[in-house]
């Protein structure tokens, strides 16, 4: 009995570890390291620059206003959503439509959810570098005031990792849904990421949304995650918006953990359900060339 448990744990770990290595090769070895580094940085810096220019055109570059770090940091940390959540679900498209390896993975001694989570690790690393560069750029050139001595780094790291785990689980849910989709599955990850960008108060306080849309934002764990990350880095500046002002940092973290646990249960349930249905419908290795 004990041996069987150890064996299944070893399969989980092996699936995760090898998928991490594979994911990194897929993401990075299409170009030489310099080109890959440029590619990884240009996209996030450009999307941040769009917001910076929009902001500076309207406010005459008033970077001291508290709304600026709110927008800038929210956008920077949101990169994790695109990379981790969408990245994990994208692995289904990659393996099924592009590399056509899905049936081999299913017939190999691989734990598929662990494999998918492993594929997200490379995206997490790339996202982390992009976030770091974007924030460093903001601190050096755009007056984003982060005082390292005032930041509770332990709490910050804990919050960051909790959020990344939550995004990975959301990615797993999406991956399950993608197993069932044939056409237009390419747009699903982007659609969800786009909706979360809009409703989670990533780049504007939720008060700006019409009142009937705000409750959607309050249901999203990302809303609390981004708020907490902003508060932990720039302190009172970020908490000067009324949206979540009445919550302490600890309360925000507890809400985040609770919602993450709920998503964990939901994601495993949804994934298993979708996987079972995809097997019944014969969709696991469908190639549409769509």
């Amino acid at each position: 009995m004990q041996t069987r448990k150890t064996d299944s744990l070893s399969v989980l770990w092996r699936s995760f570890r090898l998928a991490t290595w594979l994911g990194w090769q897929i993401e990075s070895n299409w170009a030489d390291p310099f080109l890959f580094a440029v590619y990884s940085l240009i996209k996030p810096l450009s999307s941040a620059a769009i917001l910076v220019i929009m902001y500076s055109v309207i406010t005459q570059a008033d970077f001291e206003s508290p709304i600026f770090p709110y927008i800038y940091l929210g956008n920077a940390f949101y990169m994790y959503v695109g990379h981790v959540m969408t990245g994990i679900s994208w692995a289904v498209i990659d393996d099924r439509e592009h590399y056509k390896t899905m049936k081999y993975i299913y017939t190999a001694p691989v734990h598929f959810p662990s494999y998918l989570l492993g594929r997200g690790v490379a995206r997490f690393i790339i996202a982390s570098i992009s976030v770091l560069v974007t924030i460093t750029f903001g601190v050096l050139f755009l007056k984003i005031s982060i005082d390292p001595s005032q930041v509770n780094w332990g709490f910050f790291l804990l919050t960051l990792l909790t959020g990344v785990a939550m995004l990975a689980l959301m990615g797993l849910t999406l991956a399950g849904v993608m197993l069932l989709l044939v056409h237009h599955m390419f747009g699903v990850g982007e659609a969800v990421a786009g909706a979360l960008y809009l409703f989670s108060g990533a780049i504007f306080p939720l008060e700006v949304l019409p009142a009937y849309l705000r409750p959607i934002g309050f249901l999203m764990p990302i809303t609390y995650w981004l708020e907490l990350l902003r508060r932990l880095l720039v302190g009172k500046v970020a908490s000067s918006f009324p949206t979540l002002q009445s919550f302490s940092n600890l309360q925000l973290y507890l809400i985040l953990v609770t919602l993450t646990l709920l998503f964990a249960m939901l994601s495993f349930f949804v994934f298993r359900l979708c996987e079972k249905r995809a097997k019944e419908l014969g969709l696991i290795d469908t190639v549409t060339n769509y």
Binding site: L51, M54, Y55, I58, G187, A191, I203, F204
Partner: peptide, 23 residues
């Protein structure tokens, strides 16, 4: 859904940024 809904989401996000900064 995908080709209309997606662009409208990003349009909406940028519109609300402009509204937040009083453009």
């Amino acid at each position: 859904f995908f080709d209309i809904f997606l662009p409208i989401l990003s349009i909406a996000a940028y519109v609300f940024v402009y509204r937040a900064i009083g453009a």
